[in-house]
Each structure stands twice: as C-alpha cells, then as structure tokens.
Design a protein around this nucleic acid. Structure first.
Lengths: 248, 248
DNA sequence: CGTGTGTTTGATGAATTTCAAAGCAGGTGG
DNA sequence: CCACCTGCTTTGAAATTCATCAAACACACG
C-alpha cells in the first residue's frame, strides 16, 4: 500500500485538481463546468489520525468520503468484541456507501495510517446529481461496483483455500494500487496480519503460513509489511488454478 | 419459500397494483401519479421456466428485474464448472443490480421454479428517476441495501461455523418471507442442498448434517424441502450465541 | 534495557471436506 | 400398476485443512 502521501498519478490529479472525488468525476467525461460544480460539494477536507475512526457503526450518514491520502479499513464488530473486516480502502476509493440504505453507517471506518479524506455531503450530492444526470449515473455505477466487488469476495470465501485467498488478496491490492499510479510489484501493507485474516475469513497464523508458502514457491518476497511480487503470473495461476481466473 | 403464486399480502398488491416493482415504489411514499408514471416503465412481464436463465454472465444490461412470482438464484461460474451461488431472490426482490457498474451482467440468474418477473428498462428508469427525486433516492437505497446484505454475508462466512450459518440462512429466509406476507414458520425450500451449501460456503453433505443437528436440538423439522420452524428463539440464540445477534 | 505490539513457527485437535454407499422420491415406459 | 431410472438426500468413515494453544522472536519506543 502507498505511503501516506497524495497519489503520484499526474493525470488523475490534473483531472480533478482540487477535489479528490476521483471516483465520482473521473470515470465519466464530465465537463469542466460540471467538475467545478462538483467541487462546491467539497466544503473541506480533513485528516484522520492512525487508529482513529472516520465514522462508527450507528453514526448518522452525513457524508460519503473519498480517501485522498492514506488508507482505511471498514469493519463490523460483534457483541463478543470480535471484529470482521469488510474492506480496505486506498486513495481514490469511496467510503460510506453502505450507509445510504438506512441513513446510518453499518460499519466503522478506521484509519490504518495518518490519512486524509474529502467528505461529500450526501444530501447535497443527491441534489446535485439530480441536475447532472451523468453524475447520477456515475453514482449508480459506483454503488453497483461495490456490489460486484462484494460478490467477488463471496466467491473467494466460498471456493478458495487459504493460500489461494492470500494470493488473490495480494493480486487485488496490487492491481488497485497500479490503477492509482503506484507500483504493482512493490508495496507496503498498511494492515496487520490479523486484519488480513479477518478480511479473508482466516486466522492470523494461517496468514503467516500462507505467506511462507508463497515465499517457498518463489512467488513473492514478504518481510514484515514490505511486499515484493516476484512472479505475478505464478500468483495468478495459483488463484486461477483451482477456481476463478477472472478475479484478476 | 413460497409456492409459485403471487404474494398474498393484500396491502403490497394494492399499493402497487399493476407493477410488481415493490422495492422501487413502496419503501418511499410516492404519490399515485408517481406510481402511475412508474408503471409506464413496465412494458411487459414475462415468465421464466424452472431451470431457465433470466440472464447470463456477460449479457448486456437492458433491464433490472423485480421477481413477481417464483424464485431465483444468482450465481457465478468458474472455468472448471464449479458454481458459486451469490444469492436467492423471492417475490418482491430485485435482480440485476450488479450489472449497472459495467453495463453487463456479472452473474447469471436462474429460475428455481416456474417464475414470473417484471423487467424494468434501466435507461428508462434512470431517465424517470431524474425527474422523480424520490425514485432516485430509492434506487440509491436499494443499491446500498444490497451492499449491506453482502457485508452481512461476509461477516457470516468469516465468523460462523456450519450450524450457525445454516440457522442464519433459515432465519433470514423466514424473515424475508414474512415481510412478503408468507408464513415465517412453514415454508418450502426451492433450492437444493448443494445450492444452499454453495451460498454458505459449505458442501452439501455439511448442510445435511447441519439440518440433522438443528433437528436433534428440536429447533426445526425439515423433511426434504419442507421446513417447519419449531423454536424461532432457539434458532436466534444459536446464531447470536457465538457471534452476531444483529444479523437477525 | 525493559515493555508492548505484532509476527513467526511448531504441535495438537477440531471442524469440514472428501469419498463412498445406501436410501428416497418423482417421472417414464413397459 | 409396477419396475426402473435419475437426481437428490442422507449417513458413515477417512483424510485434510484450518484453528487453537503455546512459545519464541523482532522491532519500535519510552
């Protein structure tokens, strides 16, 4: 995962200079005027300290958030204190989409490192989207894409063994990072083994062993949080091997 | 699950007489005029034979679908032929939301019994939603709710053992059926053990054994596809016991 | 230098999958 | 109407994977 600094991709930054609502304005060809109107949504941007909550389960939905710098995990907590990580978010990705359904956040978003987000006031967004059909269309797509991602997760949890899950996780992260302009081969994990495990439905020890297996096969080199992908194709084959090639 | 006939709930039927887009028009208080305009979206409704596909992975998105009668499963298929069931849909529920993100269906929807659906032409829906803010808001919520549901599934797959998953599945189905006006205590499963297993990330044999366990505890009476819930509270305790009480 | 948090590795046991076989129900054709 | 398929379900026994428990290690920080 990236270090805590703005994404290096110049194209992205240029296209959406002042805001970081990449997800909202980039995918579709909005006009400059439209982007400027979008900018009016961004009344502020603010920092979240490592370990702090951007929002918590039960909080009323005020804003969606676009990650500008840093990274987050979203997680639900059960009575007995166990937590389930439902996702990791890196710069350019959205947070809070689950809250639209009931005007209340259904999970907590915690910063994995010192981070910065752009809040997007939801009521204003809906109002503006009403006037900008392409914005609305875009919002629909973003919501739908989240559904697709979740289905991919379900597929993974239903069909893959521990090593395959880990490989799929690394590939997915690698691909998302490269989309944002970071290296797809060298990156830093911002989360602990335990959090990866929760996300993949495994224990932290199983993650450690999985890492050892991938290392033994010469596919990756992982020491601590540093990841070097040595054999991208090999990783993909591992994932595709028993099951799905299309998860990427 | 219900037999293949229209939902018995008179209130629902009355409120949305000709269409079955319950999800779209009911949750929010639309005016009669608005509902009538919504009706214009429903150019037809059509039947899908048991085992037939409503749409398949890769099909272009033309319409979303509201299930009117019967039931469906959505599933993704891997190269080696294994399938992953990502959901079951009963009358009143929506199909196809995942296709919005890429204008292409990312899973296949197969009828579990002779069924009937209302297609909702998506381009028209977006157009109409532009003019009816409450409709748009509603669509946002529906999409978001799908995300919340998927997160609940992730939580379940990550935290629960086989018996707990099965109990949670039965409770969830029971609750959805009762929302549509069917009995929450007696219903017919329209899917095979194997499909339940795929959905819950388990093998069909494990489902069988789970059923036996629930029966031994006097919680349910299941013979073949017929389900009788004997102790609803007991089921809930089982689910809540080790993990999450809020899944319902 | 001690303390705390996070990671790694080993040994053991439990839960689930796999393999196998038998039972059951519904439908078809003799 | 019965016999016989075929597809689905149930149950048992063995094999495997993953979780649990436990201990050692690494590293950052006061």
């Amino acid at each position: 995962m990236p270090d805590a600094q703005a994404p290096p991709n110049r194209h992205l930054k240029a296209a959406c200079a002042n805001c970081s609502v990449l997800e909202l304005c980039l995918p579709l060809g909005l006009s400059v005027q439209e982007i400027e109107r979008l900018d009016t949504l961004i009344v502020q941007r603010f920092k979240v300290k490592k370990g702090a909550a951007l929002y918590r389960t039960g909080d009323p939905l005020r804003s969606l958030y676009a990650v500008r710098i840093g990274s987050f995990k979203t997680c639900m907590v059960s009575v007995d204190g166990r937590e389930q990580v439902t996702g990791f978010q890196i710069p350019g990705e959205m947070l809070g989409l689950d809250a639209i359904s009931g005007d209340t956040h259904t999970c907590s978003a915690l910063a994995l490192e010192d981070s910065e987000v752009c809040p997007i006031h939801f009521a204003h967004l809906e109002k503006l989207a009403q006037e900008l059909p392409s914005l609305q269309h875009n919002l629909n797509r973003i919501l739908s894409r989240e559904i697709v991602r979740d289905h991919d997760m379900l597929m993974m949890l239903g069909n893959m063994n521990s090593d395959e899950r880990l490989a799929a996780f690394l590939l997915n992260l690698s691909q998302r990072l490269s989309m944002r302009g970071y290296s797809s081969r060298d990156f830093i994990l911002k989360m602990r083994r335990e959090e990866i495990g929760s996300y993949l439905g495994l224990r932290l020890e199983t993650i450690c062993r999985g890492i050892a297996h991938l290392r033994d096969q010469g596919l990756v080199e992982i020491s601590g949080r540093e990841v070097k992908v040595l054999n991208m194709e090999g990783l993909k084959q591992l994932v595709a091997g028993c099951h799905r090639p299309d998860l990427l």
